[in-house]
């Protein structure tokens, strides 16, 4: 019985299928809002599902001379990481005092899986543009991970030194969301920008810059494998804002969370549509110097309880 429940939670709700369906819906919101900003009509609501179905039923080509195992492992890694992340996030929010041990350190590792998958897949596909994309992805990962970690440390300090996800949420329920303080706002801004980079949205879409290196690491992927990449991205579009809500904005075990989620997603889309792409060195400088300094200020403020 227990095994069935665990399988259910990983595969159907809140793991893989639920997150994928909602995430694909959010990508429709992304495309529709983008279209409205461009003064266009935009695609119908079922567009992401149609794209997904079509990709699933198309031929999948493995390029000649590529490393087959790694090429196929790339998309899977990210998908697995995001499914586990979804289960942990939902469990922690709806049952914060439960015995399920989920801490932020595990989540940091799980969030590293999609970029690792992209790097592996991109370098395995034997295409010069894909390798350029993979190397940029790697650089960008190192760029945004530093401020992201510092911001998380300031959250841990605010939660009284606990790295347990459940306790962070309980602390917020007891003393109000962390976002309503100076260091909380700073951590929010830092994590928001890191989410933008994790999703590789403009201004941080350097790894897959459509106009210079076509689709970067995805260039050789077709059919099912491309569908999995797209779905992982869709799941991240749902899970990362939810993560922001749960570490800073009081968890999402209430109906307000839907509004908060939509607000963050629309903000991400607005930033995406009103900025030019940075170069990779500019992104590195931006994250290490600008945002890094900001996150350290936040850390000091959090230390003094502001």
């Amino acid at each position: 019985m227990n095994i069935v429940r665990i399988l259910f939670s990983y595969v159907i709700f809140p793991g893989f299928i639920f997150t994928a369906v909602v995430g694909l819906f959010l990508t429709w919101i992304d495309r529709k809002v983008t279209a409205r900003i461009h003064w266009r009509v935009g695609p119908p609501w079922f567009q992401p599902y149609a794209d997904f179905l079509k990709l699933l039923l198309k031929e999948t080509i493995i390029p000649e001379g590529s490393s087959k195992t790694l090429f196929l492992l790339g998309p899977l890694l990210g998908l697995i990481g995001m499914s586990i992340f979804a289960v942990m996030l939902f469990n922690m929010n709806f049952n914060p005092s439960g015995s399920f041990v989920g801490d932020l350190i595990v989540i940091i590792y799980l969030l590293a899986l999609p970029p690792i998958g992209i790097i592996i897949g991109g370098s395995a596909s034997k295409n010069p543009l894909a390798s350029v994309g993979a190397s940029r992805e790697m650089t960008q990962y190192f760029a945004y991970e530093l401020p992201f970690l510092i911001a998380l440390v300031s959250i841990i300090i605010k939660a009284g030194g606990s790295v347990k996800f459940g306790e962070i949420i309980l602390a917020q329920q007891a003393q109000g969301p962390f976002l309503y303080s100076i260091s909380g706002v700073i951590a929010g801004v830092v994590i928001f920008l890191c989410i933008q980079a994790k999703l590789s949205f403009v201004p941080f879409d350097i790894p897959e810059a459509e106009q210079e290196i076509m689709a970067g690491p995805y260039i050789e992927y077709s059919g099912v494998t491309l569908a999995i990449y797209k779905m992982t991205r869709a799941m991240m579009l749902l899970l990362l804002p939810l993560f922001l809500i749960s570490v800073l904005w009081g968890g999402f075990a209430n109906w307000w969370a839907i509004l908060k989620l939509l607000l963050i997603v629309v903000l991400i889309i607005l930033v995406k549509n009103t900025n030019p792409r940075l170069r990779i060195d500019q992104a590195l400088k931006f994250f290490w110097i600008g945002i890094g300094a900001l996150s350290i200020i936040g850390l000091v403020l959090a230390f003094y309880g502001l």
Binding site: A35, R40, P43, Q47, K54, I61, M214, A215, E220
Partner: peptide
Amino acid sequence: TPRWDVERFGIVLVGSPRHAD
């Protein structure tokens, strides 16, 4: 472009023949 906007029909311009239909 906004005037014709073929994304209404789901048509997207992609950069790699591997993604194309």
